[in-house]
Amino acid sequence: MKSAMDRVNLARHKKRPTTLDYIKHIFDDFIELHGDRCFKDDPAIVGGIASLNGKSVTVIGHQKGRDTKENIYRNFGMPSPEGYRKALRLMKQAEKFGRSIVTFIDTPGAYCGLGAEERGQGEAIATCLIEMAGLKVPTISIVIGEGGSGGALALGVTDEIWMLENAIYSVLSPEGFASILWKDSSRSSEAASMMKLTAEDLKQFGIVDKIIKEPGKGAHDNPSKTAELIRSKLLMGLSKIEGIQRDTLLEKRLNKYRNIGEFSI
């Protein structure tokens, strides 16, 4: 039985497949599109148009690097506002042309730097949330690694939320959690188990709709097999959602989020 921290470590494994790895394996063709048309292109988020079994879909995801050099280029998968604005531009484009949208979530969180604040990190994420909730095309998000905070959620307001078996999704990192709680970030393992951040936890809460099993020791053990599993689920999942009438779909999506929360009246 894997502990929560085992999952955290697997989700962050340096050989874990990234968004572009999955895109290459899952889709028959992919053309990447760049830029937010306002400021610049953010390499921490990739997006474009792909072909899945003869159908066009828009694919967007956080992008981590493979080595130090690429991680610096990708900012360790931590997007700036322009990344979210690019994502939103591509989503609105998908809506215009009636393409379904698939997003891959894998980020420690939105970047916390000077420029990101200056250019409105909060506004960029908020706008993604409100716009995604109302997109008139089918949407599926898959947490493939780290689902860190608002920076992850900004690509995650979708008809269905799926998670890979060893992926995590939470309000902040276990280290951040531990440092707030005990002023000691080294107690992350304890924090991880308290936070209920595993795919299984989230499925039990009814927040995540589907868990995708990982082969062997985890996705990194057999990336192409993992991709094949995602592909088959996507083919089924998309055709199911695409069959739902548009108004019903939107209402269902709104209700999904409307009903999340545990409170007494």
Binding site: A133, G134, G150, V157, V171, L197, F205, Y257, I260, G261
Partner: peptide
Amino acid sequence: ARMQESIFSLMQMAKTSAALGR
């Protein structure tokens, strides 16, 4: 976000934003 509610508090961002979309 209120960290004591972890994923539930994160999802309130989506919930309130979705309501504001309407």
